[in-house]
Design a protein around this nucleic acid. Sequence first.
DNA 1: TGGTTTTATAACCACATGGTTTTTATCGTG
DNA 2: CACGATAAAAACCATGTGGTTATAAAACCA
Lengths: 126, 126
Amino acid sequence: MVGTELLDATFAALADPTRRAILARLAAGEATVTELAAPFAMSQPAISKHLKVLERAGLVSRGRDAQRRPCRLEARPLREATAWLADYRDYWAESYQRLDALLDELQSVDRTGTERRPARPNGTGG
Amino acid sequence: MVGTELLDATFAALADPTRRAILARLAAGEATVTELAAPFAMSQPAISKHLKVLERAGLVSRGRDAQRRPCRLEARPLREATAWLADYRDYWAESYQRLDALLDELQSVDRTGTERRPARPNGTGG
DNA sequence: TGGTTTTATAACCACATGGTTTTTATCGTG
DNA sequence: CACGATAAAAACCATGTGGTTATAAAACCA
């Protein structure tokens, strides 16, 4: 198991456009809080809060450079999130979806039972 | 651009363990609300709310089967989310991160300028 | 020392979220 | 028709989130 809380925090962190923009900018290299705040029409404390969220999710780590606290990206949580997504996305996109839609249309007469379809997307179910 | 609001909704929807579990279960095939609610220690309306969130994010669509409203997965938003992630994850994992860390250590003497590092992760050049 | 820069904290606000219970709507069946 | 099952909606509550301004802390510079 991958740790539900980490996934929670990661996806929650990614759910905000400001934070995604911060990550995007951070992908171009380290940046300080004021550097990060500059492009946004938003106060510095607001950015600090966003950074705290990103930090809690493990998506950024921070260094020390005098008064500055340079932010840098951390890829690990992203990998977990991507892994989770990829798992299901592949299944849905490939195996089901189209097939499913077809079956539903064609079988709509036959509709009685509760269990159809093979079912075994991520094995033991974690 | 991919549509910020869709990404917002998608990631937000994925940020809740109950909803991820619902998606996981849904990956095994269609299910009704009561079927989905069963494994959770939670009321039916709570599940209905979660489903509404998933629906708003386009992650599930619903059919009609008498009183039942069978839920089914939709893969499209997942692809967008994965695409977004993959973009950055690759960059961070491969190009930067390690290199970055090394440079920081080695250059820590040299620290004066504001702009170092090549920088062009999601630039127009792609 | 005192001032400036950088960042974090505190206190506050409006609103969204996740849950509850109760009620209502819809449909199938006796 | 009335009942039972399925699902949604309403009303409500506690807590979290995203923002604000004002203040404080930490480090450099004059």
